[in-house]
Design a protein around this nucleic acid. Sequence first.
DNA 1: TTCATTGTACGAGAATCATCGTAGTTTGAC
DNA 2: GTCAAACTACGATGATTCTCGTACAATGAA
Lengths: 118, 118
Amino acid sequence: MTPATPSGSRSLDHPDRDDIRLAEVLHALADPVRLRIVCAIAAADGELNCADVALPVSKSTCTHHFRVLREHGVIRQIYRGTAKMNALRRADLDALFPGLLDDVLRAADLEVRRLGDG
Amino acid sequence: MTPATPSGSRSLDHPDRDDIRLAEVLHALADPVRLRIVCAIAAADGELNCADVALPVSKSTCTHHFRVLREHGVIRQIYRGTAKMNALRRADLDALFPGLLDDVLRAADLEVRRLGDG
DNA sequence: TTCATTGTACGAGAATCATCGTAGTTTGAC
DNA sequence: GTCAAACTACGATGATTCTCGTACAATGAA
């Protein structure tokens, strides 16, 4: 079949830094499943396999959420063998929205503790 | 005499602090129109009339966006005569999500400058 | 080659959302 | 009582979103 991408590699579309918009980043983060994904990547302090995040949704839905995060500029995805590694776009996000990502991560952590303790 | 707040029909539902959720706050902020509203209220440094925010949407849509912000815990709305005054729930948001609101406001301001200058 | 692993593509259904116009309500002023 | 101002309620519409299952593709290993 006709390969959609140059042979030997699979490429993924990422927005340039200048094309990242605050409202879209907030929208990407405004979902419980995606918040968990972002927290998991941050906790891994580097790259993380899609399958390494335990999520209460199907595989297709998982793909969907990772794509939303990528298309809105929150994460960067790179193929490595059969796996797809995910990393936060920290440099870009910190440059555009200083402090925002860290505060969201901290707020998510605080909320988990708050609700967990009942 | 007339109480400070109407006791009967003109009350508005606000979530308690403990019922405010990060994902919902992010969702409330993840809309360009609502982002402008929040920035305008912050710039007014206090209460702001609904009609005092210039928005590119109809009056009904305006009502809708203010309600989303209120129901998700971002703003507090109080009737004063025929007007409805709006204020940010700074204390609640800062307690739950330290730094988040300020960073969003700053990021919104930075983005306006960035896109405005081309 | 054959196979398991990993993730995608393609619908599809149910829910939510942003937007509007029109009609109505509440309040304060005259 | 009458009127204008400010906002709401309702219904509708078109778009987006979240979710899923099934079928498929790319890769690395046996």
